[in-house]
């Protein structure tokens, strides 16, 4: 079981790294926001996996709150870029 978790975390960290590269490099603001959205979703699933690794149920709530906040953040930035805010 430990190895399975290592494999899953390994793939997730590569995904995180690639989208972080796009977040730093992205030519326009939109590219950065897209990368931020992807980062949020990967981190949420990482938090859920870590809540299993540490065996703490309360960390699931942290993941839920982070998902909600990330969604609202992306929506607000999108409205700002659209010029409606």
């Amino acid at each position: 079981m430990t190895y399975i978790i290592y494999i899953a975390l390994f793939f997730m960290i590569i995904g995180l790294f690639l989208s972080a590269v796009r977040f730093v490099k992205g030519p326009s603001a939109g590219d950065r926001v897209v990368a931020l959205d992807t980062l949020t979703v990967i981190i949420v699933s990482g938090l859920v996996l870590l809540s299993y690794v540490f065996d703490r149920f309360i960390y699931m709530d942290v993941a839920l709150v982070y998902a909600v906040l990330g969604f609202i953040g992306v929506i607000v930035i999108a409205r700002y870029l659209e010029g409606a805010l």
Binding site: I4, A8, F11, M12, L18, S19, A35, T38, I42, S45
Partner: peptide, 17 residues
Amino acid sequence: FLVLGSIFLFLGGLGIF
């Protein structure tokens, strides 16, 4: 499911890149 999902997350990062 864990391994499958993490591979798709990796593919998402690669697609973004």
